Every structure is written in C-alpha cells, then in structure tokens.
Simulated scan of single mutants.
Amino acid sequence: MQALRRIVRTALVAGIVTGLCFAPVLAGDLDAHAGWTLEQGVDLPSYALIEPRSRNLNLDALVLACEPANDHRILQLQLYLTNDGPLMPDGVAAGRAKHDPRAEIVIDDQVFPVGLLFAEDHVVLSDETREMFPRLSERLLDAIEQGTTMQLRFDLVAEPTGEPAAFDGEAVIDLQAGPAQMRGAAVAAVRRCATGAAPQSVAFASPRR
C-alpha cells in the first residue's frame, strides 16, 4: 500500500523537524474493520486514517488531515490511491477520465456535494473553502463524527455522447467500526487540531562555507 507508506514517511519527517517522536501505524496494520486509526505518539493528533469497507475503484485509504493554511489550520478529507492514479473505477483506462469529474459524500440520509482537487500524491475532497484553501465544513465534520455509514460517490468516466452524467465509482466506509471508545473520538481528536493557530514555519540556517 504505497499511499500509506508515503503518509508514514511524511509523519517521520515532520517528527524530525518538530522534535516529536512519532510511532505511525504501518500500512499492513490497517483493515476495514479497525475503524479510524489516529496518529500515534503525539498529544494532539493531526490525522486519522480509515480504510473503506468496500470500493470499486483504486482507493486505498482515507485520511482526515489537519493542514496549515496561512495562520490557521483546516481539515481536509484526503484520498490515497493503490497506484499512481488517476482515481478511476476498476478496469477503466485512464484515458477515459472526464474533464469535469464530480463527487458527493452521503452519510446516512445526508448528502454533501463536494469538489475534487487532484494533488501530487492524493485527492482532496472538500465542501467549502477558507481563503482559497479547500476544507470540510463543520456540518460535514459533524456528520462524519456522529454518522454510521459514509458513501463516497464519484463521476469520473466520460460518458458517450448524448448520455447523461452518472456516478461510476463508489466507496463505503463504516464510521462506527473498531473499538467502541474510538467511535467518533478519533474524528473529534483531529478536529481539536484545527482549533489552534498554525505553527510557525521552521527556518534553517544556511551552512557556513
């Protein structure tokens, strides 16, 4: 699971820069029945990972991530893939990707249209922006924290001329999987990360010649 290994490497680098000691979860330790897995070894987790219960596309894992955005922090839902991408339904060639993909998140009986942003090694889902930074709204975060089942629906493949747009990719996430004490608690923990100011960037002195 290359995507999760990238997350582990990122966490280790961050730990070196900030002086924290991380013990991140390795990819092989995750499964769809484990529920959310929090960042380990820190007082205030900055991410939680979960694996879909089922999916028909190259989605490896979801990460609820607390990211710096100027002088504050935001929460994003980041999708990491099983390969180098693009995000596509199983068995569909990358050349059939549509130019205007769309997505929605369905949690129990609530529907949230979301935008897709394709980053270097992951895909970001968001339903609002703050100062041009894509983020999750409080309403959507409440639903993720308190909900039972989350469905991610995607319209990724270009339809033949004359046919209406339709969702062609889906992933189902069991938000209540795992130990009872972690249900909702992991999401709440990452949400606390976004309540403080973003950390100051670290300045490195140039080596003397």
Results as ranks from 00 to 15, higher is better:
residue 141 L to V: 07
residue 55 R to N: 13
residue 102 R to K: 09
residue 60 D to S: 09
residue 37 T to I: 15
residue 21 C to Y: 04
residue 154 F to A: 09
residue 64 L to Q: 05
residue 94 A to C: 13
residue 45 P to H: 01
residue 57 L to E: 02
residue 36 W to N: 06
residue 77 L to I: 14
residue 119 A to I: 07
residue 56 N to P: 08
residue 81 L to A: 11
residue 42 V to I: 14
residue 52 P to V: 06
residue 70 N to V: 10
residue 49 L to I: 13
residue 65 A to C: 00
residue 24 P to N: 07
residue 88 M to V: 15
residue 86 P to H: 05
residue 37 T to R: 03
residue 64 L to K: 05
residue 87 L to W: 02
residue 89 P to E: 10
residue 121 D to A: 05
residue 135 R to W: 01
residue 112 F to H: 14
residue 151 Q to G: 10
residue 105 I to C: 11
residue 100 D to R: 13
residue 140 L to F: 07
residue 151 Q to N: 04
residue 78 Q to I: 12
residue 79 L to D: 00
residue 99 H to F: 04
residue 30 L to A: 04
residue 23 A to T: 14
residue 126 S to N: 14
residue 69 A to M: 11
residue 158 A to I: 07
residue 153 R to M: 08
residue 115 G to P: 06
residue 31 D to C: 01
residue 61 A to H: 03
residue 60 D to I: 07
residue 31 D to G: 03
residue 55 R to T: 14
residue 39 E to Y: 03
residue 117 L to H: 09
residue 105 I to L: 14
residue 63 V to T: 07
residue 41 G to A: 04
residue 61 A to C: 07
residue 82 T to M: 14
residue 92 V to M: 10
residue 20 L to S: 03
residue 16 I to N: 00
residue 25 V to N: 00
residue 53 R to Y: 06
residue 83 N to R: 08
residue 91 G to A: 11
residue 67 E to P: 04
residue 21 C to L: 11
residue 150 M to T: 12
residue 155 D to I: 12
residue 50 I to A: 02
residue 107 I to L: 11
residue 84 D to C: 10
residue 145 E to A: 14
residue 31 D to R: 02
residue 106 V to P: 11
residue 140 L to C: 14
residue 124 V to Q: 08
residue 41 G to V: 08
residue 72 H to C: 09
residue 41 G to H: 03
residue 151 Q to Y: 02
residue 142 D to N: 11
residue 60 D to R: 06
residue 155 D to L: 05
residue 22 F to D: 05
residue 32 A to M: 05
residue 154 F to L: 14
residue 150 M to K: 03
residue 135 R to M: 14
residue 45 P to A: 01
residue 43 D to V: 13
